[in-house]
Amino acid sequence: MLRWLCALLVGAVLSGFTFLLVTGQYIKDGPVVVMLSAAHGLHLGDLFVVTGWAVAMLAVVRLTVTTR
């Protein structure tokens, strides 16, 4: 039970930081890959962040599901 609570906490923190990174503006965002609206889009740097988030979430699930 404690392992699942820790996994949920780590997942929430990872998701929160990912949200902040994707919605923020940085000097080296990279080119826009997908336009979401006239003023918003998905940059090349955002794809790197989302890929890292997905790998980290898979690692959390893997650590949580495996038995000792």
Rank of each mutant, 00 (worst) to 15 (best):
L63R: 13
V60Q: 13
R3A: 15
T66G: 15
R68P: 10
L36G: 04
T51F: 08
T67H: 13
T23K: 12
K28Q: 02
Y26A: 03
V65P: 00
M57W: 13
L47I: 08
L58Y: 07
L8D: 02
H40F: 00
G16E: 02
S37A: 02
L21A: 09
G52Q: 01
A7L: 00
A59M: 13
R62S: 11
H40C: 15
F17Y: 07
C6G: 12
A54T: 13
V22I: 15
G24F: 03
T18S: 05
K28H: 02
T51Y: 05
G11L: 09
H40N: 09
M1Y: 04
V34P: 03
G16L: 09
S15G: 05
C6A: 10
V65M: 15
M57V: 14
L5M: 09
L63W: 11
Q25Y: 03
Y26W: 01
I27M: 02
T64N: 14
V10W: 12
P31C: 02
M1F: 09
G52M: 06
V13H: 02
T23V: 14
T64M: 13
S15Y: 06
L47Y: 07
V34F: 02
G24K: 02
Q25I: 03
V55M: 13
T18V: 00
W53G: 00
W53Y: 13
T51M: 07
M35N: 06
G24N: 01
V50H: 01
L21E: 09
L63I: 02
L36Y: 01
I27G: 05
L47H: 07
L8E: 08
V10H: 10
H43Y: 11
G45K: 14
R3L: 11
F48D: 10
V55R: 01
V13P: 00
T51H: 00
V65T: 14
L20Y: 14
V65R: 04
L14T: 00
L20N: 06
R68W: 11
R62F: 12
L8M: 03
W53F: 14
F48L: 11
Q25D: 03
M1T: 13
H43W: 08
T67C: 08
A38E: 11
V33A: 05
G16A: 07
G41V: 12
R3E: 13
Y26H: 05
G30S: 00
A38H: 14
M57K: 03
A39H: 08
H43K: 08
V34L: 09
A54F: 01
M1A: 01
L14M: 08
M35R: 11
A59S: 09
A54N: 01
W53C: 07
D46E: 11
R62Q: 13
L47Q: 05
G52K: 02
C6T: 11
V32R: 06
H43R: 08
G52E: 05
S15A: 08
P31V: 09
T51R: 03
V50N: 10
L44E: 03
A56W: 04
V10Q: 13
F17C: 07
S37Y: 03
T51P: 03
G11A: 15
V32F: 12
F19I: 12
L5D: 15
W4M: 14
G16P: 04
M1N: 04
G52I: 08
L9Q: 15
V22H: 03
T67R: 13
A56C: 04
G16D: 01
G45Q: 09
V55A: 05
